[in-house]
Amino acid sequence: MSTITQSQNPAPAPRWLNTLTDYLSPGALARSSRNLLLPIIGIALFLVFWQLTAPKVDTSLGSFPAPTDVWEQAGQLWQEHASERERADRFVEMQEARNARILASNPDAEVTIRPYPGAPTFFDQIGTSLVTVLSGFLLATVIAVPLGVLVGLNRYFAAAINPLIQIFKPVSPLAWLPLVTMVVSATYVSDDPMFEKAFLTSMITVTLCSLWPTLINTSFGVAAVDPDLVNVSRVLRLSFWTHTRKVVLPSSVPMIFTGLRVSLGIAWMVLIAAEMLAQNPGLGKFVWDEFQNGSSQSLSRIMVAVLAIGFIGFLLDRLMLLIQKKVAWNE
């Protein structure tokens, strides 16, 4: 915990500028070198090592991509995204123009508005992944927090449910996925489905794998409410609901958030695997498709995805930390 709080210090830009203006003060210099310089040196050394060793690793798709190749492909992916957007805009324009023409000649004619049929770009896929992971994480939270409160409040219930938690917690998403796929296919039957089946399958798999840390931490937080505070609540004769709302939940908020952060990390990790197998059009599918594609740029493009996955995971964790600071009383 303490290392995490330390490393987040250099993030805001104003401090950056402050450090630059106080450049001459030795204390500031030492601090800035520790907060900024050392991470930069670390990254630089890693890039040099990567650049030098990558060409020596030969695969059937050419040598392993070096940082420069990855950079090039990142630009390439952005280009593809931009031109695809342009084409989509043009498609919409043409469609509108055609529909207007039809309506002009025959006002009663039924016009259809079709969405742009082009393939999703890398950035669209990032969006899909984020929506999927957040839906799965939200569902996990909605299940895990109330259940955790019950487990924490009632030790008989805890004893009954504890073995189930211990058994299901370590199950890999890859094991759940076939089952989830079959169940979703069998039960989610609709002529006009609101969600894609692949989306539901990925989301539910994410939920199944990510709810455990929140559940466990919530129950621990609830069970660890200061006995003095519980006695205060008893002296005041607070009802079960008021006691839960005013004493138990606020008291366990720090623990709940610790659980939520771990859960979100797991959710993001699980999502990529789930999308690969479920063919949900997100980052997982991107990686899988590039792998199947097997062109000379595939490895570089997969490496772009790897870095994007890592960076987004980092941002998600920061986001949770920010919310935790807003909500938790002990921060």
Partner: peptide, 19 residues
């Protein structure tokens, strides 16, 4: 049962730290 007509002052204040 406990009740407010027998209010308790605890050794370690027992205030809710978030309030």
């Amino acid at each position: 049962t406990p009740g407010p007509e027998r209010a308790v002052v605890f050794q370690h204040h027992a205030l809710m730290p978030w309030l």
